[in-house]
């Protein structure tokens, strides 16, 4: 590479595009299906139920504490497959790059994607690179789509009153780290995105799939929004105990300082699991033996109210409705 910036020619589909793809993506993603692939990649699979998902990633800053847009793009799609009960198999990678983007940064992002894909046992087997004029995008956007095969023993089941709700780790880590980095807040403390693949957590629960009703990863909109989606899906209300929600003291503190409600901030390495009460404590125990499951908690349960509200109750019995996110979160002072 004797150039250090992405140019429109890199997106023209001609020789520059081919060279870029070879120099960066073939090198990092390095797998035969990708390199063999022409218009599509080809893979073999046995009969079964498959999961298919897509997400675009537009995070700012591109490199943040605990990760980068590439790591996030792989985790996001791996996790969407995992919480659907699937073993993630293959990912696609669609890039939209602003002209002038540093090739060095692209290389770091691709390397990070490759490392994260390796860690979660998936392969990136097809891709696409588009370049848009300066000012027509903001740095880089990444779309990943993914295909996985479902655990035969898992189907989403009817959610019943009494079912427990488990969260696999501390909440709001990603959203808080990003806010800190984005607003350049001068605070010290350990703020790192929780951005990580969680398919191994779900895999560890293989023996309990009969008791798991539904899983979700609480990303955009945070745990509050995920719980509302579950309530709406179930057609039931949910009752959460605020004290049981695992949240690190520093995360709580920084959000208090900013006047932001951490229940609305994204997690990127957590799952919310609805489980039959009969096995929920066993499932919790199974999660807690994992390195990244130590903070898991049963945070509440499903109820049979006439609505699909999420109620949250605190230590002295104060109760309120936890609505879905409206608008965006901004640091407040007044």
């Amino acid at each position: 590479m004797n150039e250090d910036k992405i140019t429109l020619a890199h997106g023209s589909g001609g020789i520059s595009t081919r060279n870029l793809i070879k120099d960066i993506f073939y090198r990092h993603f390095n797998n035969q299906k990708l390199i063999d692939g022409l218009d599509s990649a080809v893979f073999e699979a046995q009969s079964g139920r498959f999961a298919f998902t897509t997400d675009s990633f537009v995070v700012k800053p591109i490199f943040f504490s605990g990760g980068d847009i590439g790591k996030l793009a792989v985790c996001g799609t791996v996790n969407d497959l995992a919480v659907a009960g699937a073993k993630p198999l293959y990912l696609s990678c669609g890039l939209i790059i602003e002209e002038g983007f540093p090739i060095g940064a692209l290389d770091r992002i691709a390397e990070s994607m490759a490392r994260t894909a390796d860690a979660s046992g998936v392969k990136i087997i097809t891709g696409d690179t588009k370049v848009v004029e300066k000012g027509c995008a903001d740095g880089i956007f990444i779309n990943t789509s993914g295909v996985g095969i479902l655990d035969k023993s898992y189907v989403t089941k009817k959610i019943m009153p009494g079912d427990d709700i488990i969260v696999t780790g501390t909440i709001a880590e990603h959203g808080t780290a990003i806010s800190r980095d984005r607003y350049g807040l001068k605070v010290d403390g350990s703020f790192m995105s929780d951005c990580a693949p969680i398919n191994h957590i779900i895999k560890a629960l293989h023996g309990y799939m009969e008791s798991i009703k539904l899983m979700k990863d609480p990303t955009r909109g945070g745990i509050a929004t995920a719980l509302n989606e579950i309530a709406e899906h179930a057609g039931k209300s949910i009752h959460i105990f605020e004290e049981n929600i695992p949240i690190r003291k520093e995360v709580q503190a920084l959000n208090e300082l900013l006047g932001i409600d951490p229940l609305y901030l994204a997690c990127e390495g957590r799952a919310v699991i609805v489980a039959d009460k009969a096995e929920s404590t066993e499932i919790l125990a199974r999660i807690r033996v994992l390195d990244d499951g130590k903070e898991a908690q049963i945070i509440g349960c499903v109820e049979d109210a006439e609505n699909t509200n999420v109620y949250i109750e605190n230590f002295f019995g104060g109760k309120r409705i936890l609505a879905s996110l409206e608008g965006n979160m901004l640091p407040r002072i007044c």
Partner: peptide, 22 residues
Amino acid sequence: AKYGISSVLPPGIKLLSGPGCP
């Protein structure tokens, strides 16, 4: 609102919000 104060109070107490948001 956050503490659900109203939920633990007798119904006879009505809490009003004044002009206190700049």
